[in-house]
């Protein structure tokens, strides 16, 4: 249906203006020469220079990237396993509890997850002597736990859409379960695994609240550093940092979008050809 009511188009325009005006304003003000963040003082790129010379910010960014890489990778492995378990093993002991454990972190207020993890780490340090101090390890453990369930959701819904009959056929023909997993299941869900990893990576890179509770002195991630700076008010160098983030993410999302659209078209074409050949 090509007829679009004027009302819907108007709402879409206003909606996207609402989405993008704050971001555009932030980008414009990152080139502001004035120290006062909200008063225009001529065009300048000095905040970008200051940003790259700021050792504290660079160190925090590096730590955030390290945590995000490690936690996304483990979250993807664990989350994929959980997704396969829920989608392909229909009956096992404790399945209800397991599916509850997989959905709960999705809706849990982050503050509660944060204090719960911190109390666990403090009591563990008391009882078994580890972790003696909080930092990279504790933040990574917490990030793996709450981002793995997002991977599970993606993998599980992908597996629910695919027919299990190919895997069953392979079992009937004498394949080992792990061979079926390696040769059939994993290739089918590889796009879901990839998007799960990306989601876990961004969630970890972006997290403030849980990191705030589980990190220790000297281990400041980038969001925690921004958080402590922003609490005191608007500062121009954060505008520059935001502009860089938006640019990187924007390019990534647009490239991914174009690739997906191309793959979509190719699949359509292939399906049409296959249909014609079978006629």
């Amino acid at each position: 249906m090509n007829h679009r009511p004027v009302f819907l188009v108007t709402v879409l325009c206003f909606g996207f203006a609402f989405f993008y005006i704050p971001i555009l304003s932030m980008i414009v003000y990152s080139f502001n020469g004035s120290r006062l963040a909200t008063v225009w003082g001529g065009f300048s790129t000095k905040w970008y220079g200051e940003l790259f010379n700021n050792r504290q910010i660079m160190r925090a960014a590096l730590l955030s990237l390290k945590i995000a890489l490690v936690s996304a990778t483990f979250a993807t492995i664990l989350g994929t396993m959980a997704g396969i378990a829920l989608a392909r093993f229909r009956v096992f002991r404790g399945r209800t509890l397991f599916s509850g454990l997989v959905t709960a972190p999705l809706v849990m207020p982050e503050v509660i997850t944060g204090i719960a993890s911190l109390m666990l780490f403090i009591l563990m340090a008391r009882w078994i002597g580890w972790p003696s101090q909080r930092g990279f390890a504790t933040v990574t453990l917490a990030h793996i736990t709450f981002s793995m369930v997002f991977v599970t959701t993606i993998v599980q819904s992908r597996l629910a859409q695919t027919d299990a009959s190919v895997e069953e056929a392979a079992i009937d023909l004498g394949s080992r379960p792990w061979q079926v997993m390696r040769d059939i299941t994993l290739p089918i869900i590889s796009p879901a695994i990839l998007s799960g990893w990306l989601l876990a990576f961004t969630i970890s890179l972006d997290d403030v609240v849980i990191t705030n509770f589980t990190t220790g002195p000297g281990n400041t991630t980038l969001p925690i550093l921004i958080w402590s700076k922003v609490k005191l008010g608007v500062t121009p160098d954060i505008n520059a940092l935001a502009t860089i983030t938006v640019t990187i993410v924007g390019i990534g999302v647009i490239v991914a979008g174009i690739l997906l659209q191309r793959a979509d078209k190719r699949r359509d074409r292939d399906a049409r050809m296959a249909y014609r050949e079978n006629l």
Binding site: P22, I23, S25, M26, Y29, A37, T38, T202, L205, D206, V208, P223, I226, W227, V230, G233, V234, I238, N239, L241, A242, T245, V246, V249, G250, G252, V253
Partner: peptide, 13 residues
Amino acid sequence: WTSFLLRVYAWMG
């Protein structure tokens, strides 16, 4: 996909 914190920050500005 952009940072949650930075979106809040944009409105502070």
